[in-house]
Nucleic acid binder design. Structure first.
Lengths: 128, 128
DNA sequence: CCAGGCATACGAAACCCTTCGTAAGATATG
DNA sequence: CATATCTTACGAAGGGTTTCGTATGCCTGG
């Protein structure tokens, strides 16, 4: 069974930073974490994430550099699926309605979002 | 401080059922929960949710009927905001791209989703 | 080569979540 | 009114998460 990509609160904080930076050492990740956790706490988070298979590391000088092994896209798909199922009864439409009112969208972003749906509709048309 | 509407795994299971049914007694909720939890477990979930202010109850016969005090829309907005922030670096566009590929969309649902964005774009146009 | 300092490893404390067992309260029926 | 039954109330066990303290390992500069 391919284990569902789900993260605890703190694990998600750490993964979020790794996805944004691409990779990170304990110090780098720690600098971005809210709440000023201790150095060894951050190390432990990364060790647990590695044990669970969500990150890997390479040696770099005397430290370790950690890389995500699961892409943000995959984790995002999984998270959105859970939200849609549990909160919106499986309706992507309802989810979109909340998504667009959740924060202000720039004109450009809205245009690109419309294009995503336009292209999807065109594909469906085609393979009718 | 308005407490962030966040739920644990099991709490979300229960809230999901209450949102879908509108309300529920312990027995009704229990019948919908996966994993066949014990009766008193479900009771405890509801009591904890009430303590946290996420549900309230009314007396009905000898039992209690529980109602959500937080709307699915509000919880959904909050959950989507967290996903967009933590996983998609604040990009609603990236979130939409994953949302539409996460499950098959019916022709009608896609059309309604396009309409949501069309109307939003029209509004922006207008208030330029 | 040796020491100072940075990094990892390990384990444990504190806390929260999940689950249920037992006791006590209330309701309907004979 | 008594009792069987359904329901709530309370507390606690077990497991996972978060956090850090202490011990140990290892580059790097002098």
């Amino acid at each position: 069974m391919p284990d569902e990509t789900t993260f605890t609160e703190r694990e998600l904080d750490v993964m979020s930073i790794l996805w944004r930076l691409g990779s990170g050492t304990v110090s780098e990740v720690r600098a971005e974490l809210p709440g000023e956790p201790g150095y060894t706490s951050v190390l432990k988070f990364l060790q647990i994430l590695e044990e669970k298979g969500h990150v890997r590391h390479e040696k770099e000088g005397r430290a370790h550099r950690y890389f995500p092994t699961v892409a943000a896209e995959e984790a995002g798909r999984s998270a959105l699926g859970r939200v849609v199922d549990k909160i919106f009864h499986g309706s992507a439409e309802l989810a979109l309605a909340r998504l667009v009112e959740e924060r202000p969208l720039s004109r450009g972003e809205l245009a690109r979002m419309r294009r995503i749906l336009d292209e999807l509709a065109a594909e469906e048309e085609e393979e009718q």
